[in-house]
Design a protein around this nucleic acid. Structure first.
Lengths: 144, 144
DNA sequence: AATGTAGCTTGCATATTGCAAGTGAAAAGT
DNA sequence: ACTTTTCACTTGCAATATGCAAGCTACATT
């Protein structure tokens, strides 16, 4: 368990409010989905995602997510233009939140019946384990 | 399982995007928390909640949540001024989402160490069962 | 050297939010 | 009965956030 932040001034002390202040907007969770499920890691990949986020908003959200410790940025060693965005442990811990949101919408709304949904429904815990494992593998070069 | 809505035009077909379009703002989930966990049912109760939502925003969010079928409204039989807001089945199905968001923040942020958090951590499934049971009880007058 | 690419920033129009005050109908108090 | 409160909002307006198109800078490629 990583150390917790001393919490900036919030509207209330409720943990749900903390989550909402960090993630409660129309883009942050979609960026995290792209990182967690699709393996996106660069600015241009996020830009080209289905929902078509504007580049100024994307830049702002990446900055915010980093300031919360949910994602980390590093420069690409072999290409000085590229920035690599990756999930921190705190970010990967959001997997259960995303999973529940996907399952809820799949259950109550007419959405694309992506393979993702079936994968989640057929075994939530296995799905989460797979996400975590992939994440650990991708990070291995940082801790090695 | 209730019938799904034919989905208004969305930015994408991803179920997570559907969830974010319905719930991705700074207030909706807090209103649902108040209904689900605190048992709030009236406009004034929501207004007085810790985070101090503005009355125009509250009115707008209640309208939106109703339009999505997440909450229902009825007039109070014994007081013609009062409107009673309650969760639908679709709304109560958000309990796992709220739970995961609370547990995530409690784990990674310095938030008030409410009894709620401990209750959730000590047994998520029991907590969810309790919420659902309380909800079923409150609704019994409607289905009787 | 010229062209392309990645990750942004800037300017500006539009939409959303937040604050304070006000409204109308119904209930409670006198 | 009539005055005051309560409840669920609405309105006006300033501040903030969002979205679009274009531009910019540091690399990288040819």
């Amino acid at each position: 368990m990583p150390k917790k932040k001393p919490a900036p001034k919030r509207r209330s002390g409720c943990p749900l409010n903390a989550s909402v202040e960090m993630l409660g907007d129309r883009w942050s969770l979609l960026i995290l989905r792209d990182m967690m499920i699709r393996g996106y890691r660069s600015f241009n990949e996020f830009l080209q995602s289905d929902e078509k986020i504007a580049s100024n908003i994307l830049a702002d959200r990446l900055r915010r997510l980093e300031s919360y410790g949910i994602i980390a940025t590093e420069r690409d060693a072999s290409d000085g233009r590229k920035v690599i965005y990756s999930l921190t442990a705190k970010g990967i811990d959001l997997a259960p939140v995303l999973t529940e949101m996907v399952m809820w919408a799949a259950r109550h709304e007419e959405t694309g019946n992506q393979p993702l949904v079936r994968q989640m429904q057929s075994g939530k815990e296995q799905f989460l384990a797979a996400v975590r494992q992939r994440w650990a593998k991708e990070r291995s070069h940082l801790t090695a």
